[in-house]
Design a protein around this nucleic acid. Structure first.
Lengths: 107, 107
DNA sequence: TCGGTATTTAAGTAATAGCTTACACACGCG
DNA sequence: CGCGTGTGTAAGCTATTACTTAAATACCGA
């Protein structure tokens, strides 16, 4: 959970997730969408992967990155339910959606 | 939105929110729950307040802090819906819950 | 095998975040 | 008024983060 929130604190990383929400992309395709250097993007991708928000698969020379939407939804929804009494009514639905995704670890 | 995620990236600040989820507390009561100095806690509270996640009200010498649950739920639910196709079915319910809370600004 | 492309690792630097102590301010009460 | 308490501000230190360039690794195709 710490790693997830840490990962989400960067605008660049949130933008990467937004791109991956539409389609899987290679490291190079992602880097091309930013003005910063490729190694910088690669480091951001590592942070996202360590947080469990994306996964990577090497295909030949290319590394394809994919969003792990369940991890994101599970962690954020879980946190909101934990802190906000207001959202408790949604608990059941959200849990159902989280489905087979792994539970977020405690702080 | 940036400020919200930035605020949530700190374990101390998330813990503060957790305390405030149960009851309103004064700055001193919050500080007493941590081992760090009072000024440090005060700075964390400023970050949370700037993010719109808490509000403060001065009563005599004391400053009472209160969680703004709608802001937290609204921002996080909104972000999840934006990035995770999986959670789109919940959109309507979440929007209803968000209710009168202000919309999160774009990145 | 050689050369080019895709990606990551390494090393170094600059900006930022979080902490501490010391101080300042505001309030309530004797 | 003057003192103690609650809180926030200021200044300074340290550690971490985000970036850069240069180099290493891995793969494909001629």
């Amino acid at each position: 959970m710490q790693r997830v929130f840490e990962a989400l604190s960067s605008p660049v990383r949130r933008k990467i997730l937004a791109y991956l929400a539409h389609a899987d992309l290679t490291a190079g395709e992602i880097a091309a969408r930013f003005e910063i250097s490729k190694p910088a993007v690669s480091q951001h991708l590592s942070v996202l992967e360590n947080a469990g928000l994306v996964t990577s698969e090497k295909k030949g020379q290319f590394v394809h990155y994919r969003l792990v939407a369940e991890a994101l939804a599970n962690t954020l929804n879980g946190y909101v339910q934990e802190v906000c009494p207001v959202s408790r009514p949604l608990k059941k639905e959200s849990a159902a959606l989280a489905g087979k995704a792994s539970r977020p670890t405690s702080d």
